[in-house]
């Protein structure tokens, strides 16, 4: 290894470790935001337990909210990465279904207010 390799590793870790810790320490959110093709199609309270189906030309995803957590419980996309991701609950966490261009993300009510103001 050269000196430059060591510098590179130290710089990357100095940036990444604090950012990752900050992300992990985020508080749980209270709103679920559903986006398809980059557009918000639905906002649901994280307290509103139930299953919600979203169907487009790309296919369908069924989103389940339960005990203040949200997941994609069923989808007809290849690979089922969105289903395998499991539950999320923290602010700004998201589940992506790339083949269906669907994004399930969690925001706090304040953030949603900002979106409306914009």
């Amino acid at each position: 290894m050269k000196k430059n390799d060591v510098f590179l590793i130290i710089i990357i870790l100095l940036i990444l470790v604090p950012v990752s810790v900050l992300f992990l320490l985020r508080e749980t959110g209270d709103k679920v935001l559903i986006k398809i093709d980059g557009k918000v199609v639905d906002t649901i309270s994280l307290k509103a337990d139930g299953q919600y189906k979203y169907e487009t030309d790309h296919g369908y995803n069924i989103v389940e909210i339960k005990d203040s957590k949200v997941r994609v419980i069923e989808a007809d996309c290849p690979g089922h990465d969105c289903v395998n991701k499991g539950f999320i609950k923290r602010n700004n966490e998201s589940i992506i279904c790339l083949p269906h261009r669907l994004e399930v993300s969690i925001v706090s009510s304040d953030e949603e207010f900002d979106i409306i103001v914009q």
Binding site: L16, V17, E103
Partner: peptide, 30 residues
Amino acid sequence: LAVIIMRSFGVLYYLPFTLVFCVLTGFING
């Protein structure tokens, strides 16, 4: 590519974590 296809930056949430893992595998490979 994911940001372009999704037309949304939501996926970038995972960037820091994945970079940590990839730096590790990059180190082992090298």
